[in-house]
Amino acid sequence: MTWTKKIIRGCCLLGLVLFFADAAAQSFVSKNIRIGMFSSTPLEDIKAVSDQGTGVIVAKTREVVVQLAVKTLEFDRKLMQEHFNENYIESDKYPLAKFKGVLDQSVDLTKDGDYNANVTGVLSLHGVDKQRTIPCRISVRGGVVRVESQFKVACVDHKIDIPRLVFAKIAESISVKLNGQFNQVK
């Protein structure tokens, strides 16, 4: 009986060590992804930005997750920020914007290089999930992974309604810009 126990213990230990070593070698995280939004119409340009996006890249499974507490988006004008949170994005009800997807190609994040890749997954915003393929540019320099991306979000896709009164001031499609530096999990 004792030798069985020893083997089991050994296996468990080995498995755990292998797993953690594996995960640590392959995962990259960021706590300060810069995420900006930009609405442009002939009447008004509206911009907002947050530096508090968080993200994870797991190289082995090619998983990419990026998340933003929408309340952290800062506007030039505080009243506009309040209206954004209260009337449009409803951040009390839907506090997070999240994208979870899978890279369409395997990228060696341990070697220096530049890659143009697509991430396919689900964009959750304002309580509505939408299947999206989002292009991004990944550059690796000395163990640091930089990710840049730019894409559009149509308000109607996420049930964000714009009243007719302000229709001319807010774009139907909002540009989102993302720029983050991911570091390896140690």
């Binding site: 002939p42 009447l43 911009k47 930005v49 030039d76 004008r77």
Partner: peptide, 8 residues
Amino acid sequence: PDKQSKIY
């Protein structure tokens, strides 16, 4: 520049 809004 990422925060500057503009009214035309």
